[in-house]
Amino acid sequence: MTYKLILNGKTLKGETTTEAVDAATAEKIFKQYANDNGVDGEWTYDDATKTFTVTE
């Protein structure tokens, strides 16, 4: 399945997608991606749209 991440960081904003077997796997990938890019904030997930959002 395709999952989407919306980044609302102070210095980085944008979107990315990943292919993952489930939401938990996608979350791990996205949290590593956000960490690698210096984004740390409040996480939400919308199962209907398979979208994670992180807001600093």
Rank of each mutant, 00 (worst) to 15 (best):
V39F: 11
A34P: 01
E27T: 05
G14R: 13
K13R: 15
K13D: 05
A48M: 13
Y3G: 00
V39R: 02
F30N: 00
T55Q: 06
D36L: 12
E42Y: 13
T53L: 06
F30V: 02
A34E: 01
E42N: 11
F52Y: 06
W43A: 01
T49A: 06
Y33R: 03
F30E: 00
Y45Q: 01
L5A: 03
Y3M: 02
K50T: 04
A26G: 02
Y3L: 01
F52T: 00
A48I: 11
K10M: 13
Y33E: 02
T11Y: 13
I6A: 04
L5G: 01
Y3H: 03
T11I: 10
A26L: 01
T16K: 11
D47N: 09
V54N: 02
L5H: 00
D22A: 04
T25Y: 08
T25A: 14
G41R: 01
D36W: 07
L12R: 09
T11W: 15
E42G: 05
I29F: 12
L12T: 10
E15Y: 12
M1S: 11
N8T: 08
L12D: 05
T51F: 03
E15L: 10
E56S: 09
G38V: 04
T17R: 08
T18E: 04
T25E: 14
V54Q: 01
T55H: 07
T55V: 08
K31T: 05
L12S: 07
Q32Y: 06
K13P: 05
A20P: 02
W43M: 04
T17H: 10
D36M: 13
E42D: 13
K31P: 00
K4L: 09
E15G: 06
D46H: 07
D40S: 14
N8V: 12
Y33L: 05
K28W: 11
D40R: 14
Q32G: 06
T16N: 05
F30W: 02
G41N: 02
A20E: 03
G9E: 03
K13V: 09
A23N: 06
E15Q: 11
T18F: 06
L7Q: 03
T16S: 09
L12A: 08
F52P: 00
K4T: 14
N37S: 08
E19V: 15
E56F: 09
V21W: 11
T25H: 13
K13Q: 11
D47E: 15
K50G: 05
A34H: 01
A48N: 12
L5Y: 02
K10W: 12
D46G: 02
D47I: 11
T16M: 15
Q32H: 09
E19A: 09
N37H: 15
K28H: 10
T2S: 08
G9H: 07
K31F: 07
A48K: 15
G38K: 08
L7P: 01
Y3D: 00
K28M: 12
A23R: 15
Y33M: 05
Y45T: 01
D22E: 04
N8M: 12
E56K: 04
Y45W: 05
L12N: 06
K4W: 10
D47M: 10
I6K: 07
D47H: 11
Y33I: 08
Y3R: 00
N37L: 15
N35F: 15
E19G: 06
N35A: 14
Y3V: 01
D47K: 09
E15A: 09
D40Q: 15
A20L: 02
D46S: 06
L7F: 11
D47R: 08
T49D: 05
F52E: 00
I6Q: 05
D22G: 04
T53F: 09
K4A: 05
T17E: 14
V39N: 03
G14D: 09
L7M: 13
D22N: 08
E42A: 11
F30S: 01
N35G: 10
T25L: 07
